[in-house]
């Protein structure tokens, strides 16, 4: 099994007629993802290589019954696009857009919680989600992931996610689902959401978690793991050498005073019984060793 998505997930791409949306939407379709429609206001009636385009998400849902959306629109419009998808009844929204203003994100997050509690947002500023061999929504290169399990991956960073997928593939270890939760300060889906889903997924036997400096989501994950996760977890945290007060590429990757340091996160995870490793390669090696012993 996989978490959040599977081979039956039907996807619309908001922004399919744009450069990024077209490129990744078509790649996702070529991978086998059921991409059933695109949405671009004012371009309803057109098509992108046979994928019909609608003016609104509501029209696309009415025509196709889609149950997921891939939002690939510029930062100015991304907040509204997410809320439009939620209002149209889409239960799972992936937003890859980088550079959304923090206040827009905070408003969208809380609006979803209050008005659309059954909608899950993944991202923004994330690589998306892939269940190898079943579906790929987002910008992950599908060919670097081996299908089948037994490992689940959750990560705040795109390239570190790819690194983890690739390391596991080199060692012949498959993945049930790989979720990129993104590097922004207010992610729609957090580590705990993914850990809970992996814990409940019978096909996932072990979990890799890739964190980074900033915020306290890794510490919350540590508490959750201690209380609720019986499967082995391997964790890597990037940013040991990051200076205080500087945003390290991601809007959310910042050490503020003494809070959000890699050291504190690693200590919390170690105390929760997680296998904490020093670099992404070790994460793959450690996981391969764990899988062998399962």
């Amino acid at each position: 099994m996989s978490i959040f998505v599977d081979e039956n997930t039907t996807v619309i791409v908001q922004g399919l007629t744009g450069g990024q949306g077209r490129f990744h939407g078509l790649r996702n379709k070529a991978y086998g993802t059921k991409v059933v429609a695109g949405v671009t206001p004012g371009k309803g009636g057109q098509d992108v290589e046979g994928i019909p385009v609608f003016d609104t998400v509501a029209e696309a849902v009415a025509a196709t019954g889609a149950n997921a959306s891939f939002v690939s629109v510029p930062p100015k419009m991304a907040g509204a696009a997410i809320l439009e998808a939620a209002a149209a009844g889409i239960p799972f929204i992936v937003c890859i857009t980088e550079g959304i203003p923090a206040h827009d994100e905070a408003r969208v997050y809380n609006t979803l919680v209050e008005q659309y509690p059954s909608t899950r947002l993944l991202g923004p500023n994330c690589p998306g989600i892939i269940s190898p061999g079943k579906t790929n929504i987002g910008i992950t290169a599908g060919e670097i992931a081996l299908p089948g399990g037994p490992v689940g991956i959750v990560s705040r960073s795109g390239t570190l996610t790819y690194q983890a997928l690739y390391e596991l593939k080199q060692m012949g270890v498959g993945v049930t689902t790989c979720v990129g939760i993104g590097g922004d300060p207010v992610p729609g889906t957090n580590f705990v959401d993914c850990l809970a889903a992996f814990q409940d997924d019978p096909d996932t036997k072990a979990i890799i978690m890739m964190g980074e400096i900033g915020g306290s989501e890794e510490e919350k994950a540590a508490e959750f793991i201690k209380a609720n996760v019986t499967k082995p977890v391997v964790a890597y945290i990037a940013g040991v050498t990051a200076p205080e007060g500087k945003k390290m590429g991601h809007a959310g990757a910042i050490v503020s005073g003494n809070s959000g340091t890699a050291q504190a996160k690693m200590a919390a995870l170690s105390a929760a019984g997680v296998h904490v490793v020093n670099n992404p390669t070790e994460a793959g090696e450690k996981m391969a060793e764990i899988v062998k012993g399962l």
């Binding site: 960073s157 390239t159 570190l160 590097g183 991601h250 890699a262 670099n279």
Partner: peptide
């Protein structure tokens, strides 16, 4: 390439006894 990998690269330089000049 990528913020996470860049941070991680700085960390690995540090881990093997060196010191990164930048991210």
């Amino acid at each position: 390439n990528g913020a996470g990998l860049a941070m991680s690269t700085c960390d690995v330089v540090n881990q093997v006894g060196g010191s990164p000049a930048n991210f």
